[in-house]
Every structure is written in structure tokens, then in C-alpha cells.
Design a binder for these strands. Structure first.
Lengths: 260, 260
DNA sequence: GGTGTTTTTTGGTATAGACCACATTCCCCG
DNA sequence: CGGGGAATGTGGTCTATACCAAAAAACACC
């Protein structure tokens, strides 16, 4: 379904136009470690989900200090090649899911369509009142009643995003009686007749703050992707305001559009 | 557990719904340093483009080891708050430009529209032949003649991306006689009658490899954003195949779309 | 078989010091 | 005044060590 117009990361270094050079790592130890691990993954010796040798094993095997090892691992982490589970170890990242913001089908369906297994967990669902920022988003006075839903979503059992969804209570009265472990979009459509006709999506790299990092069970400060989605219905009313925090290695953005 | 003896930073993001806690950084020195710098920026004491105190100055002022200082700086870098110039120092990042892949106007116009000053530098322009990957992109046999243009683009004098554009020589014969310091899209339209009617864009966080990092004058391995854009004309022919490597802190993606 | 408890392993944080390569600055000389 | 070279400052890399907190594994017990 997805056109293969992105070269495989494996073929990145294979530029035949470059002049031959003796050592692509410039003799830097942490780059050597990075390339060694990356090579083992590319060669298939380490597969998605596999655990890497412990840092101390790599240390003695490679003859370099542990700090240097970690420097190389951090770089692979930034590339999205590996990830860590706190105090458990380093693991090979599974492939990212492809997200097309112009084709809004909802998390569950597009993850499933890519042969992965999505699941959702509701962290909290409560009534709140609009602060200044939310008031301007929804075009209502400060203090207007809203619903806030916090969810955590998984792919193949790995937590990949946490989100905070805000819904206007005036448009969806008594929303909290529903369970939110399924698609919220279909609840809004079927129970309240609210259908999305326009989406406004912005994305930005970020560092996961304490709250999001805890929810994703990662160390605070890891790189992430912040996605803010505002959904409007045909009348231009804000149906959903959704702020998602993704693991940066879990997502690839793909947009296919006709030029206006 | 001794907090760094630094002047009071602004609290990072005091969420009034959180239970009160003594120390939002958990007493971790590198987080204290991070929040201290972030606070100075938020408070306006440090503005975009300003240089931070040197690591050794922060070290003595804060009473923490240099490695710990750097850990905090790296985190701010991952957030896009600061950046470094090799062996020169750390600087406050300018705000990112907003990129809307559905609204294709070209780099020059959308950067200018945001009140920033774009510029372009051609690194190389040459004839190549299609390898297997490019052959499949362009739907032509391997060995077909193509043009490869490498450019570096700036915003307000700071290099923000390098790109490799490939054009089918059959569609744009003798393309290399043009200068590419302006918009390539308009050259293709005006000189060859090629207009883009569809774009396929994918984006993915990456680490900048040696080649791109050198072109951007940053350290190899810094986080970046890989953007691949394939432009088609009305007949479905590939007009441009463009692979861009962005500084991750220079870009924000914003999409506004009607749901299909 | 299940259930707590202890031990071991693992990554997370932090220190102090050393040397290098490059950028910048300054100063001297023509 | 300009240019060149030396001195200095800066981040970049690396080592070695230490201790901690949490996860995982091993174990003892019921």
C-alpha cells in the first residue's frame, strides 16, 4: 500500500560516488561501537525485539569504557534503531508504523491495516473546565465544561504513545458513561452524530517530559514526537482536540496529496 | 542530592493538577541544569541566537561535573531548544519554520512568508545513471540517464537542510545549463512545461550521517529529520525525487486537510 | 504449583581527570 | 592597515571508578 520511495536505511552508506576512505568511523570508538551494533542488526544477527548484550559485556568485549559504549548506544537510540527498557536492557526497535494525517481512520484501523496489533488503555476520564488555552481552541468562554480523556496506546504490546483528548461537553453530553478503550471517533459519530470533516495536525520533535515519560515507562527526556490534532465538523466546531506524545521510533509520517 | 547552587530557574511547567512535590527534577543534577537553562530562555534572559556560557563556566558555577552538564545540554538539544556549533559553543535555537506538505510552494516562498530569510547554495549538479532504487522510483530501466543536484539551504544564515534532488533527464534535457540557486520547481515548469500535480512525502527522524552532517557543519550523528518527496505530474510521471535532511530543530510540520 | 524474599544483574547517575582538534582571538610583524 | 602566526578557549572524546535504584532471576517456603 505504501509506495517504496524511501530507501532502506541499510543502504544509506552505500554511496558508490564517494571516494574510498580508510575508516568511516574516523577511529572514534563510540562510532565503531555504533556501526558494529548497526551492522549486526542489518545482517540479521539481531532481530526486532531482541535484546542486546549488556553494557558491561560490550565493555569487556570491546575493550572500551562503558561511557563510550553508552555514547554509541544513545546515537542508535536517536536513530530509532534500538530502544531501552529502564534497567532491563537495550532492545532492537520494531519497524515504525506509517501515519498519514490526511487519511484519518483512527489509530486502531491503520495499525491493524499494517499487520500490527493495536490496543488502547484508558488512563483517566474526567470533567474539567476550559482554561485560557482550551477556551480559545474551542471558541468558548474560560470555565466552559469539557471532558479530558487520557489514554495509552500500544502496538504489539509496546506502549508507543500517550494522548490527552479534550471534547466539548456541550457537543457530547454525558460522554463519560462510555468506555474509551475503543475508537473515540466512532463513539462521537454514532452516539452524538459528530463527524469529522477537517483535521488540523501539527507535529514537532520534543523531549518527553516527566509525565509522558512515566506513562510510556521510559526515561524522562527521551526524544519524542508531539502531535496535536484538532478535528472540526462540517460546521467548523471543534469535535476533538488531541495531543499525542509518540515514541520517536514508532512512527513514520507519510502524506500523499494532490497539489492545490 | 545537593542541588546545584545556581540562581532560581523558572519552574519548567508547573501543572496545577499534579500533586505537590518537593523537587520536579528528583534531585538529578543534569535535570536541574536543563531546567535552569530552559528557565533562563523562557524568562528571556537568553534569546534566540545567544550563546550560552561555556561548559566549564557552567561547571564551576553549578558545582557539578562537566559530563553531567553536557547530559543536560544534550537533552535540551534533543528538544530543539539549543544547538551547538562545533568547538564554538552552545546557542539558543531560533524558532522553527512551519512546513505544510500539502501546500507546495517551494522552500523559498514559504520561508519568506514566515518572515525569515531563505537562501540556497548549489553544492553540485551532475549527470548520473539510475541504480536499482532510482530505476524503480522513476519507472525506468537501470542505467537510464538522470540528473543529481545537491543543494544546501539556509534560513537567516543558518544551514538548515541539505538535499539531493534527482530529475529524469528524458523529461528535462540539458537541465544542467540552469542555475539552481533559485526555485527548481519553477525551472521545470517554465522551461520544460512540467507541473506538479501530486506529491508523495514521507518523514522520519534519523541521525545525520557523515556526509549530511559535514554539509550542515554539525557533528555526525546529530538528530535530524529525513524528508523524501516524490513529485508527479498529471500523467503520473516522476518530475522530482527529493531527499532532504533537516536539522531537527528547524522544522515543524503542519497539515490542514479535509477528511476524505 | 504458587508466593514471598533475597540475590544478582542491569542500566542510571555522577565524579575527576586527561588529551585532542578545531575555532576564535590576539598580537606581532610587515 | 592587513596578514600571518601563536596563544587561548571551546567543545569532543575517552578513561576509570563509584554508588544507586529498579528489574530480573534465583531461591526458600508454604
Amino acid at each position: 500500500m505504501i509506495p517504496p520511495n524511501l530507501p532502506d536505511p541499510m543502504s544509506r552508506s552505500a554511496s558508490q560516488t564517494d571516494p574510498p576512505r580508510a575508516d568511516p568511523t574516523d577511529g572514534l570508538h563510540y562510532l565503531g561501537m555504533r556501526d558494529y551494533i548497526a551492522g549486526r542488526i542489518a545482517a540479521g544477527a539481531l532481530k526486532a525485539g531482541d535484546r542486546l548484550p549488556s553494557e558491561r559485556q560490550l565493555q569487556t568485549a570491546g575493550g572500551v569504557a562503558r561511557g563510550t559504549i553508552r555514547q554509541g548506544l544513545f546515537q542508535l537510540e536517536a536513530e530509532g534503531v534500538i530502544y531501552r527498557r529502564d534497567r532491563s536492557g537495550w532492545y532492537v526497535s520494531p519497524p515504525p508504523v506509517v501515519y498519514d494525517p490526511t487519511r484519518w481512520e483512527g489509530f486502531m484501523s491503520y495499525v491493524e491495516a499494517q499487520g500490527r496489533e493495536p490496543s488502547t488503555e484508558t488512563l483517566s476520564a474526567e470533567s474539567i473546565v476550559a482554561d485560557a488555552m482550551l477556551a480559545s481552541v474551542f471558541g468558548r468562554p474560560a470555565g466552559a465544561p469539557l471532558y479530558l480523556i487520557r489514554r495509552r496506546r500500544y502496538i504489539d504490546g509496546r506502549a508507543v504513545l500517550v494522548e490527552r483528548i479534550v471534547v466539548d461537553a456541550a457537543l457530547a453530553p454525558d460522554l463519560l458513561r462510555f468506555s474509551f478503550d475503543q475508537s473515540l471517533t466512532s463513539i462521537l459519530r454514532q452516539a452524538y452524530g459528530l463527524s469529522v470533516s477537517r483535521n488540523q495536525v501539527t507535529m514537532q520533535p520534543c523531549a518527553l517530559t516527566r509525565e509522558e515519560a512515566e506513562a510510556l515507562k521510559v526515561k524522562s527526556g527521551l526524544p519524542g514526537l508531539s502531535v496535536v490534532r484538532t478535528s472540526f465538523d462540517a460546521q467548523g466546531r471543534v469535535v476533538e482536540y488531541d495531543h499525542e506524545f509518540w515514541r520517536h521510533d514508532a512512527l513514520r509520517i507519510s502524506v500523499d496529496i494532490r497539489v492545490r
